[in-house]
Design a binder for these strands. Sequence first.
DNA 1: TTGAAAGCGCTAACAT
DNA 2: ATGTTAGCGCTTTCAA
Lengths: 349, 349
Amino acid sequence: MAATVKDIAQRAGCGVATVSSYLNGGNVRPGNREKIRQAISELHYEVNETARQLKTNRTRMIGAVIPELNSTFCASVLSEIEDILRQHGYAMLVCDCRTDSVREREAVDFLLKRRVDGLFVLPVDETGSNLRKFIRTGKPVVLIDRQIEGLDVDTVCVDNRAAIRSAVDLLVQKGHSRIGMIAGPSGINAARQRMRGYIEGCEKNGICQNRDLIFQGDDSIESGTAGIETLIKMHPDMTAVVISNYRMTMGAMIGANESGIMIPQQLSVVGFDNPQFARAVHPRLTIVNQPVDEIGERAAKIMLERLGDVDAPEGSMDGSEDCANPECGHRHIWLTTAILEGGSVLDRS
Amino acid sequence: MAATVKDIAQRAGCGVATVSSYLNGGNVRPGNREKIRQAISELHYEVNETARQLKTNRTRMIGAVIPELNSTFCASVLSEIEDILRQHGYAMLVCDCRTDSVREREAVDFLLKRRVDGLFVLPVDETGSNLRKFIRTGKPVVLIDRQIEGLDVDTVCVDNRAAIRSAVDLLVQKGHSRIGMIAGPSGINAARQRMRGYIEGCEKNGICQNRDLIFQGDDSIESGTAGIETLIKMHPDMTAVVISNYRMTMGAMIGANESGIMIPQQLSVVGFDNPQFARAVHPRLTIVNQPVDEIGERAAKIMLERLGDVDAPEGSMDGSEDCANPECGHRHIWLTTAILEGGSVLDRS
DNA sequence: TTGAAAGCGCTAACAT
DNA sequence: ATGTTAGCGCTTTCAA
């Protein structure tokens, strides 16, 4: 059996409180300090965090509920978060709910029972009903990438509307006026915002006022392929297309590849996410690039702040829009995307 | 404060043992059963897993130490594992050690303190010294993708040697004889095995006996780019190249892209991993495809079996080579890869 | 079947 | 600064 504080106390010839004090960085007389150190080393003692958790009512574990681990966006953000959390002694419990709202609810309840100290969620269900039970505990929740209206929790998002709007702007600048869009499911707020960005961009530039150039996809690779093939068949006069997420971007590239669509001569493309992928396809893809590391970092910092492990970061409101309702006391961070230019947009001007 | 079994017992008018029995599926008289059910519902009671853990000395948590979450291979395997584990009530603690052996050791110790019931490791340090302390606890360890010689633990790997050997075979079949290789770091067993597969394939087919067509990369995107550019410059007579991992494959595509190398007319390519990426580049890439889901599934099943949560799977030795030393009692699963043909290999025969 | 009570390993309050 | 002790919420004997 593993050694306990009692064993250490016995061997060091002192009380358990002294050992506990030693473990938690309290004041211990040098003599005892040395004896305890030795006992710990001899007995291969390792603190039992479980017992500590029960006593202190803190698990130093944070849950993360995400739609799919196997997505560069999620993985990159989580990897950043995990790094920061662990530096502060927190462990991360990951639950992949496979883009399924029922599994998402189960995951939240699972983490609730395990008494995680906080929760990161990249929500699938955007009504927030899966989260209410957890929120009631008063423990911090940080939403990533998707906000839920009416839910009073911290949020770190990118400005999806502006992202796609600027993609449309770029295309218009380069002389395009028949611009299509491969959009995501209207049930996802982020996808809706991107769609709005497209519409706003078109309206602002006085193009494509009817929405016939929008292909309604479902964020899957397959729908990206279907999207580009459908749009180009139905609208031979279309000269450019913007794509609403990474998977559909990948799918569109597959479609272009397999249908022999020439990029950018025949069709200009602005994709979404993953600069490495963008460099690997030919011609290099112009994309909307999300600041994944910053998203993770901001989310982690907010969590640590709520947990009292770190002070509010200086300038914590920088580059971000405040919550519409300031007295809610929660952060709503909006980060901005950038366009990374490749060679997939033809200059027709 | 959250309700406890005591509160439930009080409200239901029974003892805590009865409540505990109810919670754990024991026999409880229907009258009590109903009263307890109601009390739980009214008080929003949720079992405190932490307390349960302390008492039962099992955390129902499994650690996973990996070199990088942000890699499709790791993410896919973990996602499969996590799915299966959670169905059996286990939570997964992920630690990304960023391909750093020191961080890996810290991660293992971190998980040890938190008393995880088992550990999945995709080892960076291949001496196994980072794992010994954990192994001494007698808790199960399952190694993924990389075996460690002399370490007596379960392992789930793919046959990397055969994988690359068959890639070479394919190229020879198609009439190639000057075949290059972009290899990974010799400190990584998997990379070494792939290199051996290349050498064996060449010897078997009587080609490239001197090793001048091997570029020594480091598994990074950058080294893939450097690899393809260097090889083609130094060896204009080379007609094909095999690449040892996914990142370098991506890097090689970037290099081909940016240096204007024509695939497959000028150079045939066999890449590694990620069938979706393979479809998205032009021409569609021929790749060595690892059975990621099966790797995750086998690893998870072995873990559950060791934990006593599941019986040994029927035919658990199928499609796998046994441990050289059968009395060690540990599984060494070898899964096979397949070649997924695209259009990146020119038929010169 | 059920209640009372011990105890998992730790921290913290209290007394010294 | 340190020893003694109670108790975190649960499971699990042991009696009844």
